[in-house]
Amino acid sequence: MDGDYRAFLDDLLSISTPSGFEGKGQRRWLDYVEQFADETRVDEYGNAVAVYEGADDTPAIALAGHGDEIGLMVRDIDENGFLKLARIGGSDKTVTRGQHVTIHTADGAVDGVIGQVAIHLRDPSDDEYTDINDQYVDIGVSDEAEARERVDIGDPITLDTEITDLAGGRVAARGLDNRVGIWTAAEAFRRAVETKPETTVYAISTVQEEIGLKGATMVGFDLDPDAVIATDVTHATDQPESPSSKGSGIELGAGPVVARGSANHPKLVEAARGIAADEDIDVQLQASGNATGTDADAFYTTRGGIPSLNVGLPNRYMHTPVEVVEFADLDSAADLLAGIAVRGDEFAPFTVDI
């Protein structure tokens, strides 16, 4: 991946968007998709939508990802100026200590570090992971008053990491969950619109997925499309420490993942697999017996039920600062989503045969 498409992804990864604080990232996403859209709009909580208007009496297909990421928040400030922490979403206590962080304040970024007692001073027999609520950020000040001049309770915090290219066309970064999903939705939208399809196509970047699929519930009710493909990361288990009891056979580089069961509408599963075969796109299958854990779960229970499909992007080390994806999977997913959007009328109406 290179050129404008890679620059767009890097821009998304460089902007901090913890749940509830997605505005700057949503703005960058809109700047990209509005080049190809007939209209863009944003709702009261920041869900962003681009619209391509197709012909009358044709299906409206939505391509969605979530624009937020996990993070931390200033919960309190102690008398010595150390910042106490709360989670935003599923932040992992095993990877937060000893990390550089940025506190995002109304007056700009404040640098800090999450403290970790030196190995020389720790009792090896008591080497357990400390809960995030018991961890703290050191911003270098001497007391509470000095800290309160710089930060407020409720300021969001993100870990500072680099975007690192690895061998094999892979990249490591914080927040690939789910910047790669909104990149894929935007790029699939561009590819679909270039063909001037008969269908109406939406591209959506939702907010607050990491804290309960909130944005998808809002925007799904508002748009009420005929079908939604929600694109999010899924666990690649091709790594040495993946537990065998939770192994899924999902591999980096083997293509996007089509989920089956629960939220995933049979007609959309059929469409995804058929288009993949027609277009020679490698896909992987994933069992989803109870829930997908993605925005698809919110979309398909909105209104009277919106036919939905979860397409996964294989990701190693999810919810850590070193998530890893392969560019080829993103490119294939964009082709697959574009194909579903363009050919949606072939599979409509999206109903279950009984």
Rank of each mutant, 00 (worst) to 15 (best):
L85I: 06
V95G: 01
E79Y: 12
T102E: 09
E44I: 15
Y52Q: 10
E39T: 07
A109R: 14
G175H: 02
T301C: 05
H104A: 02
E22K: 10
K267P: 00
R28K: 14
N80A: 10
R273E: 11
E187F: 08
H66L: 08
G154C: 04
K84N: 08
D78E: 12
D131I: 06
P59A: 06
A50T: 10
A62M: 12
D331P: 01
V113N: 03
K246M: 14
F299V: 03
A62Y: 11
G115E: 06
L330A: 02
G220K: 06
G181R: 02
L9I: 10
R122I: 15
G249A: 14
L330T: 04
G253L: 09
Y202K: 10
D134A: 13
S248D: 12
I153L: 10
M318I: 14
E53F: 13
I70P: 00
S242T: 07
D134S: 12
D278Q: 14
L159G: 00
E53T: 14
T102W: 14
Y136D: 06
E198Q: 15
G274N: 06
N290L: 08
H319V: 01
I204F: 13
I132Y: 00
A50G: 09
Y45H: 08
D295Y: 05
T217S: 03
G54P: 03
V201N: 01
G115H: 07
D345T: 11
D126Q: 15
